[in-house]
C-alpha cells in the first residue's frame, strides 16, 4: 500500500509549478499516472523513489514511513524497495545483459531470480550482448527484468512503452500483466496510451498542472462521460468474420466469448487483439431468473 501526499515547487523552462500530489494505491494494485507532459508525472515517480526530495508531506509504503517532512525523515533510494524502469532504460552500456541483471542482485541473494526473469522475458539468447547491440524492444525487456531482480515491493515504469512499435508494445503489455500477477508487486505506470491503461491498470490518477484532477478505475476515467447509463464491458477482439452484408466480431469479455454484429465502417478501425468496449442500451438486455 502506497500512501503519498507531497508538495514540491518544480522549476522548468516554462517557469515554476506547484506540485501537490496525493493518492493511495493498494498493495498489489496496478496504478497509472495519466496526463499531459510537464504535469509532474515523472517528478511524482522520482519523489516516490527518493531521487527527488519534496518540500513537505509524507510517504508511507506498506506501513513503514519513507518520507516525513515534519520529522525530517527521508529514506535514501538505496533503502527503498523499488524497481524503476526509466524512460531511457538506463541500462549500463559497459555491461552485458546478464551482468546488468547480476549487478542488480543484492549480495547473497539467490541468482535463481535472475534465471527466472531471463526465462520469463525471453532473454536467453541475449545474455552475452551489450545494450547497444539490442533493439529498443529488447532493451526494454532487459530494463523490466533488471528492475525486478531485487524483488521490489513497488515497480515504477516511466513511460517505458512509448518509443516502441505497436506489436512489441502489445507483447510487453502482456508480459507486464503476467509479471504483475506472478510477483504481486505494486505497480505505478506513466502512460498516455488509453488502450494500454485499460488493459493493465486497476486505478488511474489523472494529473494536470501538478495536481491530481480525477482518480478512479480506467472505465470511470475514460468512459463514464460518453457512456453513462449503459451496460458496458471491456473485451478483446478474437476474430472478425464476414457474413453476407454484416460482420460478426467475436469478443472475449473476461471468461466469456460473445459475438457482436458490426457494420463495415465499425470494422475498419478494428483488428484481432484490439481492446474494445462492448456496450448495450438499457432496453436491449433480456433478463432470466436463475
Amino acid at each position: 500500500m502506497i500512501e503519498l501526499d507531497v508538495q514540491k515547487t518544480l522549476h522548468s523552462a516554462n517557469g515554476s509549478m506547484q506540485l501537490h500530489v496525493r493518492f493511495t494505491l493498494g498493495r498489489g494494485q496496478f496504478g497509472t499516472l495519466y496526463g499531459p507532459s510537464g504535469a509532474g508525472k515523472t517528478s511524482t515517480l522520482k519523489i516516490l523513489a527518493g531521487l527527488m526530495r519534496p518540500e513537505s508531506g509524507h510517504i508511507t509504503v506498506n506501513g513503514s514511513p519513507w518520507f516525513d517532512a515534519k520529522k525530517g525523515l527521508q529514506l535514501p533510494p538505496q533503502e527503498r524497495s523499488i524497481g524503476f524502469v526509466f524512460q531511457d532504460y538506463a541500462l549500463f552500456p559497459h555491461m552485458t545483459v546478464l551482468k546488468n541483471l547480476m549487478f542488480a542482485l543484492p549480495k547473497k541473494a539467490d541468482p535463481a531470480m535472475v534465471r527466472r526473469l531471463v526465462e520469463i522475458m525471453g532473454l536467453e539468447g541475449l545474455q552475452t550482448r551489450k545494450p547497444a547491440e539490442l533493439s529498443g524492444g529488447q532493451q526494454q525487456r532487459v530494463a523490466v527484468a533488471r528492475a525486478l531482480v531485487q524483488r521490489p515491493e513497488i515497480l515504477l515504469l516511466d513511460e517505458p512503452l512509448a518509443a516502441l512499435d505497436l506489436e512489441t508494445r502489445l507483447q510487453l503489455q502482456d508480459d507486464l500483466a503476467k509479471l504483475h500477477a506472478e510477483f504481486g508487486f505494486t505497480t505505478l505506470l506513466i502512460s498516455h496510451d488509453i488502450g494500454e491503461i485499460m488493459k493493465l491498470s486497476d486505478r488511474v490518477f489523472e494529473i494536470r498542472d501538478g495536481n491530481i484532477l480525477r482518480e478512479g478505475s480506467p472505465q470511470e476515467i475514460f468512459l463514464s462521460k460518453k457512456m453513462s447509463g449503459k451496460f458496458q464491458f471491456t473485451g478483446e477482439v478474437l476474430g472478425i468474420e464476414r457474413q453476407e452484408v454484416v460482420y460478426i466480431v467475436t469478443i472475449r469479455v473476461q471468461m466469456q466469448v460473445v459475438q457482436v454484429i458490426a457494420g463495415e465502417s465499425d470494422i475498419r478501425a478494428l483488428k484481432v487483439g484490439d481492446r474494445v468496449l462492448v456496450a448495450s442500451k438499457a432496453f436491449n438486455p433480456i433478463l432470466y431468473k436463475i
Binding site: F84, Q87, P106
Partner: peptide, 11 residues
C-alpha cells in the same frame, strides 16, 4: 538515470 538506477539497486 544510470546513477539513479544504481542507487535504486541499493548501491
Amino acid at each position: 538515470s544510470l546513477k539513479e538506477a544504481s542507487y535504486l539497486m541499493g548501491k
